[in-house]
Design a protein around this nucleic acid. Sequence first.
DNA 1: CTCAAAAAAGTGTATATACACAACACAAAT
DNA 2: ATTTGTGTTGTGTATATACACTTTTTTGAG
Lengths: 149, 149
Amino acid sequence: MNNFVSVAENCALNKLRQTSRMVTKIYTEYLQPSGLTPTQFSLMTALSLLGSATMKRLADVMMMDRTTLTRNLKPLERDGLIKTFPGQDRRLKNIALTDNGRNALDEAFPLWEKAQTHLASILGTEQWETLHTSLNAATKVMQKKISVQ
Amino acid sequence: MNNFVSVAENCALNKLRQTSRMVTKIYTEYLQPSGLTPTQFSLMTALSLLGSATMKRLADVMMMDRTTLTRNLKPLERDGLIKTFPGQDRRLKNIALTDNGRNALDEAFPLWEKAQTHLASILGTEQWETLHTSLNAATKVMQKKISVQ
DNA sequence: CTCAAAAAAGTGTATATACACAACACAAAT
DNA sequence: ATTTGTGTTGTGTATATACACTTTTTTGAG
């Protein structure tokens, strides 16, 4: 009984992971000169938009587990790209870009743009749009249904 | 200059990762009783289909880095769900499910089906189909363009 | 005011991912 | 037969992910 054929072809998560792995290769390669990983670039972008944010807020915005965020920020702080400072509420930890962080982000931006363009050209305009639409729809719906803790 | 707004909204990789994280939550929860992670389930499914496979072959089929595969197989072998044996060509390492592995996979299958059904119901039939279509198209095109080493 | 509940964050542990490098086996050319 | 190159795999290191548990601080009920 080969039910298992359908897993290989139809498992949504497996497909997501495979796609994610391949797309990661592209962005990692393009971001290489900046010294930033894709995750780091995304986190810093979010911080650039937020100005500063607590761990919880940043985790929510990124739809990232709080504890994952803690580990992901470690290299950024070590390298002086972000800084942290307590809030009035002493439970809170605020995070913001440093000047070095802002500079690194500015340098990385055009590299990210090239990665986007490259992927778009590989997929073709239509598939590129469809991918975005479906991922946006998926995250939007799941955000409501799933507690990000 | 807030170029960075477009990153949060338009970064394909960021969207892929976010979606992947949320979908992972669903499948992990459903697979919980089986003791298998989603990755392990997918790997074992592939092995079930292939009968047995070398590291390289399995990595290719899974579109997974060879060295990632090495680490991912460790817990499965430790738990007696897969076994390995050398080929005639002594560079090759063959991998196959054990009887325990096959049993575990049989038990996990209906759990995976429930996860699929649950996600499909969250997304709705149309989005579910669109997601699959676009991910399939993406992996198909990238598989040609990108060397998986 | 006191103390229990809740909220924010960190740590231990485990899996997932992949690059750079190393080790080993086979193949092919001379 | 030796050498040289190629193919297959593993290891060291680093980031990415998240659950269970703990610590600290704040809030709120009485």
